[in-house]
């Protein structure tokens, strides 16, 4: 387009770029492909770290107990929400619907989980807070979600979560409007069921007893 074909002259000798140059180019390009593939796999840990650090997507923070001196008088309502994945035959609900806490003040809330199946199952909980922007300021000190939970058939457990909401939430222009934060959990059947299988072996021996347990512990509904 920008060159004129009428000026093309044909040479009689062939001058080709050396083949090695093509080889070098190809090696560089393959390197680029390998790099991008590596990046794709690296994205998994990087994404997790990113969410943890920035509270992205409502990821909560893990913290030590807060200093008493940091408590301010402003209140925030924390709402509790519970979900169970379809593939996990558990019931799971918060014991209290909401708690009002002062910013910076440590609080404890309870959740209740019941295994309604006839097999021991390991569950693991995912969590986030809504609105997402509060994630950066929502600190958990102790949480059942830090570990996996094993529940025997019919077994019901109450599980605590201790937390505080960082008082700097009111200093952030973005989050100053947040009056209530929902803390939400979803229990999944853990991919690693080895703990449950151990229980199951013992369960065969004490089958009668287990049946009794499942009749005794009836969820309150």
């Amino acid at each position: 387009m920008t060159k004129q074909p009428d000026k093309i002259k044909r040479r009689t000798t062939v001058t080709r770029e050396p083949k090695t140059r093509n080889g070098v180019t190809a090696v560089i390009l393959f390197g680029l492909v390998a790099g991008m593939t590596g990046l794709a796999f690296a994205s998994d840990p990087l994404y997790r770290i990113f969410c943890k650090v920035t509270g992205y997507g409502g990821t909560t923070q893990v913290a030590e107990a807060p200093a008493k001196s940091k408590i301010v008088d402003q209140m925030v309502t924390v709402r509790f929400d519970a979900n169970v994945n379809k593939l996990l035959p558990w019931q799971f609900k918060p014991v209290q619907n909401t708690i009002k806490v002062r910013l910076g003040e440590q609080a404890i809330a309870f959740y209740e989980a019941t295994n309604v199946s006839d097999k021991p199952i390991v569950g693991t909980a995912t969590f986030n807070v809504a609105p997402f922007k509060a994630g950066e300021y929502f600190n958990k000190i102790e949480c059942f979600c830090f570990t996996e939970q094993v529940l025997k058939p019919g077994q019901m457990v109450q599980m605590p979560v201790t937390f505080y909401v960082d008082q700097s939430i009111i200093k952030d222009r973005n989050t100053v409007d947040v009056k209530s934060i929902t803390l939400s959990y979803t229990f999944f059947a853990s991919d690693d069921q080895s703990e449950a299988e151990k229980l199951q072996t013992t369960q065969f021996i004490t089958d009668e007893k287990d049946t009794i347990i499942s009749r005794e512990v009836v969820p309150k509904g």
Partner: peptide, 25 residues
């Protein structure tokens, strides 16, 4: 390559018990 990486993760999630995209893990 990014698609290839993601597809590989999905493939191993489906068949070899990895949990790149599964909240359960």
């Amino acid at each position: 390559p990014v698609l290839a990486g993601a597809l590989t993760m999905l493939l191993t999630d489906r068949n070899f018990g990895t949990t790149f995209f599964s909240p359960a893990g």
